[in-house]
Structures are given as structure tokens and as C-alpha cells.
Design a protein around this nucleic acid. Structure first.
Lengths: 339, 339
DNA sequence: CTGTTAGCGCTTTCAC
DNA sequence: GTGAAAGCGCTAACAG
């Protein structure tokens, strides 16, 4: 793979009949006589000149590149996040270096190392493993959701606690009496843990007895769910719960399918609210898989980039929480969803 | 956003007590005396040195960066493609510059321009608009699916024609007598147009009368479908078709939902096969939305990268087609799917 | 094999 | 204002 030989600033200078420095000034918006500016601009167009990023980067130690470290892009939430990060960066003239780490610590560290060495100007990280100690000092970084102990790193997340409360409140509003909570979580701590806290808080507040599945994520989630349902059958086969707040849409949908397959009617017998706001084919207008507390993905991405790009000038907040919102997705008796 | 001041090769040379060139040789795997190699390696570790990408890029005109130009990452097919491209590049020590062009021609051209000017070593493009004439000459490029007239560009795609045939054959195998075809297509020509040709060919071959929706993609797809269904009702309200081959899973699923809402039983009354192989939450193990002719995304991505990275040494095939395969997804009477 | 050196294309002084 | 020139850190060519 060989790159094309592009015209250099020198070529432009010759074409325009001015000095090299003048061309540089025009390009960098430094005042130059009107006459020369026009000549240079004409020459640039004539030669279809563009700045060589490496030469500039060598000089300025800036690349206009930002690395996004993310487990993958196939998960619809990550996919949407990536998409909006790209847009937010593009708006600012920055480019996105996509690093899918697959939750493989070595790959995350690999990418972090690369990032540390003059390749990118900043990092946005949404990681699974515990890479805190590998984060290069003094390279601007923003993390989504995760928390690292060894260093204060600006974090951005949804307001998971309020989201958890909201889920319960919506279920109550739609007539539930016994909302349960189900989660299959990662072993690493993050802001999303607060969804559970929100559930528990709301239970306390509204005088409900908490009841839940709270397990480390496993391939066996389905059988754990089956087991849970079996144990919550009354003698007449009805269920002791009538609402489900699922930590994620993914498991909520799984639970939904399971209930259907067992003849439970959703939302008549049991209502379900998930978390994330995953849309079926990824389009913003697409249906949700289930009713959900939606993360404001676009705003989250925008906020990450905003904080990252301002780290030089202002001390960023160590934690920024954006509100999540409820949206109907077919698994709630939502009167607003009259159709 | 300021980058850290990293140690330079000069620092390493001083630390190791050798010349600059020797350090360079060690780093680039050029033979050096065992003794010096060890000294240099020790110094590199001691200083935690890593090559400055810009300096190297300036010199070699290579960046180890490949741009992927794609409409977005939210579409699950694009998301999976992106994911596998990243993996294929990473394997080869290359990095991925992600360019989501949203089908906006200006953004595609923008990115193409950037690519042309010493920023990336190659381009993988999956574009919507007609950017053929903006593709920089002599920059390695591979396009997925699309065809550009002005220049011979290596293309990679699924074998859409065979896939179209396969869809019909599967429907027949599962008992259909009257398979229809539905598509809402882009205005730009591409390999995926051959799905239709495959359908028509199979109809001819098996003595079927083709019947289809074939419209330019529109927000109005749903009402076009409704209309089509209404016109295909017999007096007794039964349908004149019993199989559907949808150009995409997306519209196939839409048609599926529509049929269900009209009381048609799927797959008992009508069977549906889509195209793409979209999985519900993006995981490789997840269920399909509907039975589908699946594109071999991983192999397609791998092939794109393989061709791109070998463009210097060999003349790449101008078209590479990879076979698509059928998979059960709930909307066919597939005896193999006994459950 | 080793050390020295000339740039790669750009930004940024510095005299003019 | 402008033009000339010194590097940024590296690779590659060259002489030793």
C-alpha cells in the first residue's frame, strides 16, 4: 500500500510565487496581505493541496485523532455510541480511530500504549476490563460509565440511579404491585451498577419488598431465569410478580420471550421495562425491543467529546450524569401508547 | 488536548551508548550485533520508548492507518462489518480510521480527500452516493458491493445472485408455490441488485411467475406493502402468495410484522426469507429477526483487508464474490429447525 | 556491522 | 508584513 505523492507546501509557494512561510500562515489563519492570501489560495486550489498530517503532527505533536476504545460495534448500544462519537468529532475537525478491544485486556492495553505514543490526541474509553493502571498520564481521556481507582478521570454516564427509580415508578404508574429486578452484571464496577440502587431505593420509598435476580453475567442466564420463574409460581400457576425492571434491554427481551413461551401475557400479566433503549434495526425511528429507560446516547457521546476537547482549558467535572428517559416499547400497559 | 513529551530515538541512542542509526535498525528488525541489540532493547525498556508515528510517517509516507468509509455503524450489518474490518486490520498491525459518511456525499468526499493526503494507507469503502470520480488515483482502495464506472476498483461482495436463487429454492423446498420478492432499493447500482436477478432466474428455472414489489426506498414502504397485500387477497381473503423473499432482513421483518397484524400466520400461511443475516442484539449467537440468506460478514471483511493489503504486490481481482448461506430464523417451515 | 548525515513537509522563530 | 532557516523524530543511504 503506497500513498500518492501529494503536492507540498513548497509546491504551493512556488506556484503562488511567495515564500514557504507565507503559505503556512495562510493555512493557519495568520494574517497575511490580501494579495498574497488570494495568490496562495488560488495555488492551493490549483494543486489541490492539503496539509500533510505527519509533517504537521511531527511539528505540533497533534494529530487531530481521537481513539475510541470500545468492546465492539456489534452491540447496538456501542454501535450507536460509536456513531455519535464520530459525528461529534467530525464536527470539530477531529478524526476517529476505532479500537474494538473485545474486552481483551491485552488489546485494550495495546491500544492504550499506541495512544500514549503520539498517535492520538485523546482517548474516549468504554472498557470492560481493569485497565486503570495502564492509562497514560497526561493524555486527555474521558471514560464512559467505568470507574478507575488509581487516577481521577472525567467520567460520563447516564443517570442510572434516577433511571432505576424511574423504571419502578413507571411500572407502578402502569398498575404493577410487585416489580422485580433482574441483572446479569460484569465483574467490573461502573455507573450502571446504580440502576440496581435506584430500584432498591424506589422499593424502599414506595414500601415494596425488593425481589431480584442479581448474578454475574453467564451463558446460563436463561436457565437462571427459568428457575426464578418456576420459584415464583403460586399454586394456581400465577406469578408472584407483575412487573420486571431489567438491567438491560438484552436480558429484558430474553425474559420477555421466556415469559411468552411459558404462556404469560405481556403486558397484561407482567409488564417489562428494560434499560438502554436499543432499537430493532439501529435506526433512531425504529421500534424498541421492549419498553425501556433509554440512555441519551447522542448527548452522552457529545458530552464525552466536549469534555475531552476542553480538557486543556478547563478542569472537567469528574463525573457528568445525563438523564435517561422512559419510552414505550410494547411491554407496558402505557396509556400514553394508545394506538 | 496536548500529547505527552515522549523520549526520542536520540534519547535511546544516548542511553544505550550507540548511534541513532543503530537504534533505528533494532526497531526495524535490521540485523545488528547481538551486543548492541541487547543494549538498545534495554534502553528502550528503561525509557519506555515507542516510535513516534508522525516522524516515521513523514519519512515513509505510511501511516498504518486504513480508512473505512461507511454510512453509519448503527445499521447492524454495517456494525458487524466494521467490527470484523477492525479485527482484520488489527491482526496485520493496521489501525482503523472510521468514517461514517451518513450517505452525505460531501462528507464522503471530505473523507476521501483526507484519505488522499497522507493520512491513510488505504481505503475500504461502503458508500451510498456516487463518489466514483472523487476517488484519489493510486491510493489502494477496495469497495464493498458498489460499482464505479470511471475506474477499475477491486470490489468485494456476497454472491447475491446465487443468494437470490437460494432463497427461492429454500422457499420451494419448504413447500411454497408462489414466492414473491420485495425490495426497496437505493438509486445507486451495486452488486446487491443481483438478488433480484437471482430471484427472477430461479422463477424462470422453476416455472414460476415472478411477482414483486420493486420500488426506490422510501419512508412510505409500509403503505406500499399494505397496498400490495390488499391487492393480493383472494375473494375468500386468502393470499395469492405463500412465500416472500425480501431483499433485506429489515423490510422482510417489516413485512412479517405487517402480515402478523393482518392475521396471517407465519410460517404456516406465508414463509419469509430475508437477506443479510441480521442478529437481534448483534451477537454472533443471537437469533435472526427472520429466516435469512446470511452474508458472510466476517469473511467479506477479511477479504477486503486481504485484497487491500496486497494491492502493491499483486493485481487484485476486480470482483470477488463470497457465498451467502441460508439460516433458519423462525419464518420458514424448515424441517431442520425441529424444536 | 556501525556511525554519520540528509532530508521527509511542516511550523515557527528571526531578521529584514 | 515577508522570506529565510532551524529543527520536529525518524529512515535510509553512505562511508568507514
Amino acid at each position: 500500500m503506497t500513498s500518492r505523492k501529494a503536492p507540498t507546501m513548497k509546491d504551493v509557494a512556488k506556484e503562488a510565487g511567495v515564500a514557504l512561510g507565507t503559505v503556512s500562515k495562510v493555512i493557519n489563519g495568520i494574517p497575511v496581505s490580501e494579495k498574497n492570501r488570494l495568490k496562495v489560495e488560488a495555488a492551493i486550489r490549483a494543486l489541490n493541496y492539503e496539509v500533510n498530517t505527519y509533517a504537521r503532527g511531527l511539528k505540533t505533536q497533534k494529530s487531530n485523532l481521537v481513539a475510541l476504545i470500545i468492546p465492539n460495534t456489534t452491540n447496538p448500544f456501542f454501535a450507536a455510541f460509536t456513531d455519535h462519537i464520530e459525528a461529534a468529532l467530525y464536527k470539530r475537525g477531529l478524526r476517529l480511530l476505532l479500537c474494538c478491544a473485545d474486552g481483551i485486556p491485552q488489546k485494550e492495553i495495546d491500544y492504550l500504549n499506541m495512544a500514549a505514543n503520539n498517535k492520538v490526541d485523546g482517548i474516549i474509553a468504554l472498557t470492560y476490563s481493569d485497565i486503570g493502571k495502564f492509562i497514560p498520564p497526561s493524555l486527555p481521556i474521558v471514560v464512559f460509565d467505568r470507574f478507575f481507582e488509581n487516577r481521577v478521570i472525567p467520567r460520563v454516564a447516564s443517570d442510572n440511579f434516577s433511571g432505576g427509580c424511574l423504571a419502578v415508578e413507571k411500572l407502578l404508574e402502569f398498575g404493577c404491585r410487585h416489580p422485580i429486578y433482574i441483572r446479569f452484571h460484569s465483574v467490573f464496577p461502573g455507573e450502571s451498577d446504580k440502576r440496581r440502587d435506584g430500584y432498591l431505593y424506589a422499593c424502599e420509598k414506595y414500601g415494596l419488598t425488593p425481589d431480584y435476580i442479581d448474578e454475574v453475567d453467564t451463558d446460563d442466564a436463561l436457565s437462571i431465569m427459568k428457575d426464578f420463574i418456576r420459584k415464583h409460581r403460586r399454586p394456581d400457576n400465577s406469578l408472584t410478580f407483575d412487573g420486571v425492571f431489567s438491567h438491560t434491554d438484552y436480558h429484558g427481551y430474553m425474559f420477555y420471550q421466556l415469559l411468552l413461551s411459558e404462556g404469560v401475557r405481556v403486558p397484561q400479566d407482567v409488564q417489562i421495562i428494560g434499560f438502554d433503549g436499543i432499537r430493532k434495526f439501529g435506526n433512531r425511528q425504529d421500534d424498541l425491543f421492549i419498553s425501556s429507560i433509554c440512555q441519551p446516547v447522542e448527548q452522552l457521546a457529545e458530552k464525552c467529546v466536549e469534555i475531552l476537547t476542553s480538557e486543556d482549558s478547563v478542569t472537567p467535572p469528574s463525573l457528568t450524569l445525563l438523564p435517561a428517559y422512559y419510552q414505550y416499547g410494547g411491554t407496558t400497559r402505557d396509556p400514553a401508547a394508545l394506538r
